[in-house]
Design a protein around this nucleic acid. Sequence first.
DNA 1: CGGAATCCAAAAAGATACTG
DNA 2: CAGTATCTTTTTGGATTCCG
Lengths: 132, 132
Amino acid sequence: MTDLVRETVIEKLRDGEYNCPKELTLSMFSGKWKINMIYHLGHDGNYYFYELQKLLPRASHKEIAEKLKELVEDGIVDRHPEAGPRLKVSYSLTPLGISLLPIIDSMYAWGEKRLKELQLRHVVFGLGETKD
Amino acid sequence: MTDLVRETVIEKLRDGEYNCPKELTLSMFSGKWKINMIYHLGHDGNYYFYELQKLLPRASHKEIAEKLKELVEDGIVDRHPEAGPRLKVSYSLTPLGISLLPIIDSMYAWGEKRLKELQLRHVVFGLGETKD
DNA sequence: CGGAATCCAAAAAGATACTG
DNA sequence: CAGTATCTTTTTGGATTCCG
């Protein structure tokens, strides 16, 4: 299992000593690739495992498998194995996962705005007008 | 420095190859205690270093110092050293940090709702009505 | 193809101690 | 008080392998 934040949250939940709602939310998608997976599944629909691998070329096979497993455990993602000669598994968001999309979208919007600011500053640096 | 997500984002930004706004946002507060710090600073105003230590008793001195340093580097938090016989430093959110509060508040709301659901299920388990 | 196990390298975190 | 450095332990991640 991965991610200390998620670990801590799960442990606290089990012990009934939990008191920080925003950490619970963060633990849902703070793993290295989870937010991308949720985003893609939320905006494009279902994906097969191997499709997710193509979408996230910098993530290892192991990471994708681990994160998907956690997302399923957390009730964010559904797993759909298909019968056949070769095992094929597709994934989709659960209603709970879908309920995270507004948060991720607002994060996207914030990040986009911030990115533009940073790029503008970068141009200014390039012109030698100011320093970092 | 800490947090691989943040590292990756910074690196990508430097190389000009950046293309994922939501990861940028996530990198702002995905460190282990950052979201709590931002939340407290946002809702309560300024805090001294030693006050943050009291607010986050499970976070080590080192962690708090590191995360604050990163938050300052990222433009989320301002550092206010006070002159005196003993060094005293207070911290506050920058406008940029304040602009993150709506996202954190929506995370809080989501987590609160989810927490209630989980607790309800927990009660049911305790009564032996169903299984995990 | 999807998933789990293994081994190994890299990263993060705790403890401690030192400085201004 | 705040910040940094060092050392050690724990976690995490990549690569590879094996199995259904």
